[in-house]
Design a protein around this nucleic acid. Structure first.
Length: 413
RNA sequence: GUGGGCGUAGCUCAGAGGUUAGAGCAUCAGGUUGUGGCCCUGGGGGCCGCGGGUUCAACUCCCGUCGCCCACCCCA
């Protein structure tokens, strides 16, 4: 084979792309109901936008940015996530619109693995301007409604509150103080994190790190009183709404811009390495950090590939998209067949025919394979009688219909 | 980025230092000169991932490379 796809990217062929269409369609149904509007953002941005927003100590920025120099030597990056661009667009458009959703591919230069490509698809949501527990709940319910509408059954909602930037700074210091004389029990990665990003030691999977961390007071009880009260209120309302959730006191996110509420929707269906199918949280400081007016904001993103994988494990099947009519013709009458094909399609009937001029038998086999509802036959006899034969593929019955009435008759069925 | 496994037909996989490399499924055609599913018969399709080395001889052994998978890490 002369050309092969690049490492970490993929073609989504029709045997799978119908799932994508379905997921996107179902998500948009709900997003419209919540009055969120589509924003189309560029795939490329100045690299600095991502460094500033995601954080220069995060793995995404440190090792996964897909960057290059353009023809004028500017540092450009393919977007590794959508929030930074939406915030930039929000600022540039002077806050005219507030509730957005986006969909498209993201790029991270990782070593490819199951559930982790260099190019992958996300649907994301961002909402600006409101800082209240009701907005937080709306966003969680929106996420839940989308997954439910898609038909995902097995997931758990995990929440945590990581406080303001100030809280995080104080808490990080607390972690550092507590762990600095216990370094020998930490894994090598966490020793590095101790200086750079102490919060992230909390979600290390290494056993001895987890043990150590258990003894630290959780961040959600460390945060300021106002935030704590609001967090409790929010949990109560979630319970009133019958939305089940679990608190994961070690849940911190891998992007620096989060403040306050964070959440992940986790599935057991895909194995521990790709079990987060949707994640997000509040980021009240980011708009200001990127040069806008101080504006509270919150949002989430979901991974389409992972959603599709979960659907596959849940024996999901779509209502068939089979054609209504398959036209079978004698090759002398291909033109007549083709004209009829066009008229039927104009009349909004899903119609198919083969252009290969092969045998009746072969055409019937194709009609069967596509599970077409009817076969419409144009042969020698039909032409003589000025009628077409219409065969019901389910029960095998066949009737003849006058040429001139064919479209009306078919539409009646 | 680190460690391990694997690359043979469209798919799932068998095989083996020595003539034309196999099976099932898929595909196409025929059995029925104008009619599907089941059945039967046949056809097409492989630089045995790529490059190099060892050998009289490599798809098989060795090295490299690329790709996939798994674990760590990270994330959606």
């Amino acid at each position: 084979m002369k050309y092969e796809k690049l490492r970490g990217v993929k073609d989504v062929l029709p045997r799978e792309s119908f799932l994508w269409e379905y997921v996107v369609k179902k998500a948009i149904e709900i997003l419209k109901r919540y009055n969120f509007s589509l924003i189309i953002i560029p795939t490329i941005e100045e690299e600095n936008l991502f460094i500033r927003s995601i954080g220069d100590a995060t793995d995404i920025v440190l090792k996964e940015i897909y960057n290059f120099l353009d023809k004028k030597g500017r540092k450009i990056a393919l977007r590794p996530e959508g929030t930074a661009s939406v915030v930039r667009a929000f600022i540039e458009s002077s806050g005219e619109f507030k509730d957005f959703f986006y969909l498209g591919q993201m790029f991270r230069y990782d070593k490819p693995q199951k559930g982790r490509d260099r190019e992958f698809y996300q649907i994301g949501v961002e909402s600006f301007g409101v800082d209240s527990e009701y907005k937080d709940i709306e966003i969680i319910k929106l996420a839940k409604d989308i997954l439910d509408n898609i038909g995902i059954k097995s997931y758990e909602i995990q929440i945590n509150n990581i406080g303001t930037k100030e809280d995080q700074k104080n808490y990080s210091k607390k972690i550092k103080d507590y762990l600095s004389n216990k370094k020998e029990k930490l894994c090598p990665d966490c020793i590095k994190k101790l200086e750079r990003a102490p919060l992230r030691i909390l979600d290390c999977k290494n056993e001895s790190c987890t043990e150590l961390v258990k003894n630290i007071e959780p961040i959600c009880s460390f945060i300021t009183k106002d935030l704590k009260e609001r967090y409790e209120k929010m949990k109560n309302i979630l319970t009133d709404l019958n939305i089940k959730f679990t608190e994961n006191k070690n849940l911190v996110r891998g992007l620096d811009y989060y403040t306050g509420l964070v959440f992940e929707f986790v599935t057991q269906k895909l194995g521990p390495q790709q079990n987060t199918i949707l994640a997000g949280g509040r980021y009240n400081d980011l708009v200001e950090e990127l040069g806008g007016k101080k504006t509270p904001a919150t949002g989430f993103a979901m991974g389409i590939e992972r959603i599709c994988e979960v659907l596959k494990t849940e024996n999901f099947s779509l209502e068939s998209e089979s054609p209504d009519i398959f036209i079978i013709y004698d090759k002398n009458y291909i033109k007549e067949a083709f004209l009829l094909l066009c008229s039927l399609r104009d009349a909004k009937v899903k119609t198919v025919m083969s252009f290969e001029e092969n045998s009746f038998k072969s055409q019937m086999r194709q009609a069967n394979k596509l599970s077409s509802k009817f076969a419409l036959i144009i042969g020698e006899e039909e032409i003589k009688m000025q009628k077409y034969s219409l065969k019901n593929m389910k029960d095998g019955t066949q009737i003849q219909i006058d040429k001139k009435e064919i479209i009306n008759k078919i539409k009646e069925r």
